[in-house]
Design a protein around this nucleic acid. Structure first.
Length: 580
RNA sequence: UGGGCCGUCGACUAAUGGUAGGUCAAGUGCCUUUGGAGCACUUUGUCUAGGUUCGAAUCCUAGCGGCCCAGCCA
């Protein structure tokens, strides 16, 4: 492969490894791709292919921020014919669980990626231990008896250098003995650590003799009780990369300060020189992407679980109805850089609409029913009218929709006193019922509270199907459902989980939970759906015409489907109305 | 205030010393049996000040602003 070819990647990938690669489009340049092109050109790693890895810690569910990392790790490697491992960074047994491992694998697959090797940092515990022994023998690591608190005090501050531990000058023999006994479980948690001997005066705090191993008498989800000492991230991550011969190790910006340490271990161990590259973490308005905070929402039952459709987790947005392709397109479009910024949620929603617009069958559903009686329509008559399934996709075909004398329309679609620019049904106004007839509102029936409970209309039999033989026009088309044939359904309308663009923007003393939007979920118990939806399978997606995209929730029961609103359609009228 | 990183339309991101472009958002119009979709058009940007250069978003200097780092978390 020549450098010239590399500089303009093909628009489609020849690899069939990932579903995601099939839809690949020309991507804008970014600094990591540039580095790969350069490294291939200069044969930095000889003839080795690009090797990346996606390294989640199994201590929570993956979210949309991880999707960006996944698309980068897998996408970039795939683009250059390279490989990507899924590696669980499981060095902290106290926080990690098999449930998270399972969910992560499921989510990566759902996104459309297939890893080459499935790896665990815990698979390397033995090798890591041997390397620690080597560093001790080389006089580059020592066992420290200081307490956590004392270590902290010795570390110094941002502006003052640290002080050396009194245990820093132990001999390799003594360190070897102590480290061995740490491993054997002779010491309680927290009594000793193994530290790298680097520089207590470094302006980079990560280089001030960082802890490599701590004692933790805890069962590990994979290694059980085999170990009671566990490596720290900094001592495990780079070496794991090295073992897997990762060429380009991508991580987020906050690890920039760790790179010198990453390189220190590589150099002093003399192992495969993986190179770390840091990119900007994804931030989205009205969204929290912190595992700690998402965990809190779950644990305190502020949401229904990790897969609550309001959660930014991949399981949440999947349940909400987002498609993997939409998420991938989004990730490709937002690019990657070293700038810390916040993307507008609207950007994500755009890609969801764009994808669903192409694939979601159209269907009619009335969320807030208002009864309409067609006075001049024959009692008891039912017509089966033709409706097209997807105007964006001719192959989607047509279906029959029953029409009768009594219908439901949306309450929003009738106004007794229409405001300016309101084109929908109102007294004396003629509109089109989609795929049916032109109707004209004649009168209303109100209850004791003065609310409109029924609208009486007449229809023009000559407009069957929705066209007038005299070519007269109507200003609007509204959707409807035949009352007698309607399917009763629960519909869950989701909105942003948080009321503020920055959920962390709180008053003194308040927590981010104060910004939770109490209206983020509105449940409609009895929406009226066209009968074709009776057997819609879980996770199937539809466009409810003029309303938005909806998908079938797993809570659905036979005869009583539950639909989630994925995202509303863009609403020009709402905009006009809001402006006044 | 020590160190690291970063400043381009409202948001995100290109331009790799040579025309500041794309996407989202916003607005206008066209079209429409979804006030959807689509199409067309429009508005708005190189943090500041110096310097180098025929030419600077890009290189240099100095400011200013933002983010990250003092876990035996990752």
């Amino acid at each position: 492969m020549s450098a010239a070819n590399l500089s303009s990647p093909p628009s489609g990938s020849s690899s069939t490894k990932s579903a995601a690669s099939a839809a690949a489009e020309p991507r804008p340049s970014n600094f990591i791709r540039d580095a790969m092109i350069e490294d291939l050109k200069t044969k930095k790693y000889g003839d080795a292919v690009i090797q990346t890895r996606f390294p989640p810690e199994p201590n929570g569910y993956l979210h949309i921020g991880h999707a960006k990392a996944i698309c980068l790790d897998f996408g970039l490697a795939d683009e250059f014919g390279g490989k990507t491992n899924l590696r669980f960074d499981d060095t902290n047994p106290e926080k990690e669980e098999q449930e998270y491992v399972d969910s992560i694998m499921k989510d990566v697959h759902w996104l459309g990626f297939e890893w080459d090797d499935l790896c665990y940092a815990s698979d390397y515990f033995g090798q890591l231990y041997e390397w620690a022994v080597k560093l001790i023998k080389d006089g580059k690591a020592y066992v420290d008896d200081l307490s956590a608190e004392e270590i902290r005090q010795h570390r110094g501050t941002l502006t003052e250098p640290g002080k050396q531990s009194p245990y820093r000058s132990r001999t390799p023999e003594e360190n070897l003995d102590l480290f061995e006994r740490m491993r054997k479980g002779e010491f309680p948690d927290g009594t000793r650590v193994l530290r790298a001997k680097i520089d207590m005066a470094s302006p980079n705090l990560n280089m001030r003799d960082p802890v490599m191993y701590r004692i933790l008498h805890a069962d590990h989800h994979r290694t059980g009780s085999k170990w009671c000492i566990y490596p720290m991230y900094d001592y495990a991550h780079g070496q794991s990369d090295s073992i897997e011969r990762v060429t380009h190790s991508m991580c987020t910006l906050e690890f920039e300060d760790h790179r010198p340490l990453y390189n220190w271990f590589v150099q002093n161990l003399g192992i495969f020189p993986s190179q770390q590259y840091e990119f900007d973490r994804l931030s989205l308005t009205y969204t929290l992407l912190s595992k700690r905070r998402l965990l809190k929402l779950v644990q305190e039952n502020l949401v229904r679980g990790w897969d609550d459709p309001r959660m930014p987790t991949l399981s949440g947005i999947r349940r909400r109805g987002y498609t993997a392709e939409a998420v991938r397109n989004f990730c490709a479009a937002i690019g990657v850089s070293k700038t810390n910024g916040t993307l507008e949620l609207a950007m994500l929603e755009h890609f969801v609409r764009e994808d669903l617009n192409k694939r979601a069958p159209r269907v009619m559903a009335v969320l807030r029913p208002l009864k309409v009686v067609i006075d001049n329509y024959p009692d008891g008559q039912v017509e089966e009218l033709d409706a097209v399934n997807n105007p964006e996709d001719e192959t989607a075909g047509t279906r029959k929709v029953p029409f009768s004398k009594v219908l439901y329309i949306e309450q929003d679609d009738f106004r007794e006193e229409p405001p300016k620019k309101y084109y929908r049904l109102s007294p004396g106004v003629e509109v089109r019922l989609r795929y049916a007839y032109f109707i004209t509102a004649k009168s209303v029936v109100k209850n004791e509270q003065g609310e409109i409970v029924e609208v009486h209309c007449t229809y023009d039999p000559a407009t069957r199907g929705g066209n007038a033989p005299d070519a007269r026009k109507v200003k609007s088309t509204i959707h409807w459902v035949s009352a007698e044939h309607a399917l009763d359904a629960e519909v869950r309308l989701y909105d942003k989980l948080f009321a503020k663009p920055d959920p962390n923007d709180v008053e003194e003393g308040q927590e981010f939970t104060a910004n939770l939007d109490p209206n983020s979920l509105e449940t409609i118990a009895h929406a009226k759906l066209e009968p074709s939806l009776a057997d819609a399978p879980v996770e199937s997606r539809y466009q409810f015409e003029r309303l938005g995209y909806f998908c079938v929730d797993p809570d659905s029961k036979p005869g009583k489907p539950v639909f989630n609103r994925t995202v509303a359609l863009k609403d020009a009228w709402a905009k006009i109305e809001k402006r006044g």
